Amino acid sequence: MPEGHSVHRIARQFARNFVGKRIRLSSPQGRFVDGAKMLDGHTMTDARAVGKQMFLEFDNGLWLRVHLGLYGAWDFAGDIHASGTDAAIRGRRRRNVGPAAAAVTLDLAGEDSLQSIGAPRLTRLRMAEDEQVSVGAVGFPPEPVGQVRVRLLAGDVVADLRGPTACVVLDPQEVQVAMDRLGPDPLLDDSRAAEDRFVTVVRKKPTPIARLLMDQLVVSGIGNVYRAELLFRAGLNPHAPGRSLSDEQARALWKDWAHLLKIGVATGQMMTRDGLSDAAYGRALRRRADRHWVYKREGLPCRVCGTHIALEEMAARKLYWCPKCQS
C-alpha cells in the first residue's frame, strides 16, 4: 500500500500539471460514470494529500477523494513538468540522511526521473508505491491501459486511476469531516499542537505501539515499511503499549516520522538508513534490500547487533523487528 510520501508526491504532480486547468473526466471502466459527470468540464483548483488519502478540488465546490489502498495506482502521461523545487534537487547526492543533506530524485533504475518526466508526450509515469518511468513514442492521449476507474484529461496531460480502494465525490462539508477524522500529518502541520495531539493519543492507549503507528486516526501516512523502520530507529519493542512510552520517546517518534517523510517526498524512496557513503546511498536508492534496517530482512543478521531479524504477524500485517536492539 502506498505510504504517505507517495501520496504527497502524487498530489504535487496534480498541483504542477492539473490545478488551474479545465479537466475532462471520464470513466473508461464504467464504474465511476456518475461521479465523473459531476466534475467533468470544471477547473481543478486544489490538490491536497493527507496521509494516504488525496483530495482534488474543483471550481463547482466539489472534491474528488482518492484512497489508493493496496492495488491502486495513477498513470500520468503527456507534457509532465517538474516544479522548480524538484528541479533544483536534480543531480545532487546526499551523503547522509540528515535534515541539511542534499537530495536526489531517482527512479527504480537509478535514473533521474525528473529529466524523463519532462519529455513532452513521450512519458508515462506510474505512481503507486514505486515510481516507474518508460519513454517511447506514445500517441496523445494514450489509450487507457487496464481497468481505468477515472481519467482526468487537461489538454496536454492525462492521469488514469486504476484499482483504488476509494474514489468518491464529496461536498466541502464531507471533505472537512474526512480530513478531521485523520490523525496529524507532519508534512501538513509540523506545529507543536500537532505533535502534542499525537503524543497525547499514544500515551493514553494500552494498544501496542506497532498497531498505533498504523492507525490512520492516530497519525497519518505511516504504513508497514515506515512502521518497522521507525520502531527500530527508536529502539522500541513493537509490543510495548503506547501508554508505556515516555513523553520523550513519543515526541522522538513524531519528529523522526516528520524527518523520514520529508526524505521520502524528496527522493521518491522510503530511505531509512543513516550514515551511508555516496556509493552506498546510491545503491540504497536503487535497491530496496540496501535501503532499510529491518523491513523484509527476516532471518538476516541485524545491521547493528547481528541478531536475526524477526518476522511475525500483527493485525494481519507483517511485522519486522530486532529482538535485541528493540528488547
Rank of each mutant, 00 (worst) to 15 (best):
G61Q: 12
G61H: 12
G61I: 05
L62A: 07
W63G: 05
W63N: 12
L64S: 08
L64D: 07
G69K: 10
G69E: 08
L70D: 03
Y71S: 03
Y71E: 03
Y71P: 00
Y71G: 01
G72D: 00
W74K: 01
D75C: 09
D75N: 06
F76T: 01
F76V: 00
F76H: 04
A77L: 02
A77T: 03
G78K: 04
D79Y: 13
H81I: 01
S83F: 07
G84K: 11
T85H: 13
D86L: 10
A87G: 10
A87I: 03
R90E: 15
R90W: 11
G91Q: 06
R92S: 02
R92H: 07
R92I: 02
R93C: 02
R94I: 02
R94L: 03
R95S: 01
V97D: 01
G98I: 00
P99E: 07
P99G: 02
A103S: 04
A103E: 12
A109W: 15
E111R: 14
E111H: 13
E111F: 15
E111L: 14
E111T: 02
S113K: 09
L114T: 00
L114F: 13
S116K: 13
G118P: 06
A119S: 09
P120H: 04
P120C: 05
L122V: 04
L122R: 15
L122F: 10
L122Y: 11
T123Y: 07
R124W: 13
R124A: 12
L125W: 14
M127F: 07
M127N: 08
E129I: 04
E129T: 04
E129V: 04
D130V: 01
D130P: 01
D130T: 08
E131T: 03
E131H: 14
V133E: 09
S134H: 15
V135K: 15
V135F: 14
A137D: 15
G139C: 08
P142M: 04
P144S: 01
V145Q: 13
V145F: 14
Q147K: 09
Q147N: 07
R149Y: 15
R149S: 12
V150R: 03
V150C: 14
R151E: 11
L152K: 09
L153V: 01
A154K: 05
G155D: 09
V157A: 10
V158G: 03
V158C: 04
A159P: 05
A159H: 03
A159R: 00
L161Y: 14
L161I: 01
R162A: 09
G163I: 02
G163P: 04
G163F: 08
T165G: 05
T165D: 06
T165S: 10
T165L: 10
A166T: 09
A166D: 10
A166Y: 12
C167W: 10
V168Y: 08
V168D: 10
V169T: 09
V169M: 07
L170G: 11
L170D: 12
D171E: 09
P172W: 15
P172N: 15
Q173N: 06
V175M: 05
Q176W: 11
Q176R: 11
Q176K: 07
V177H: 13
M179H: 12
D180G: 12
L182M: 12
P184T: 01
P186L: 03
L187P: 02
L187T: 01
L188V: 00
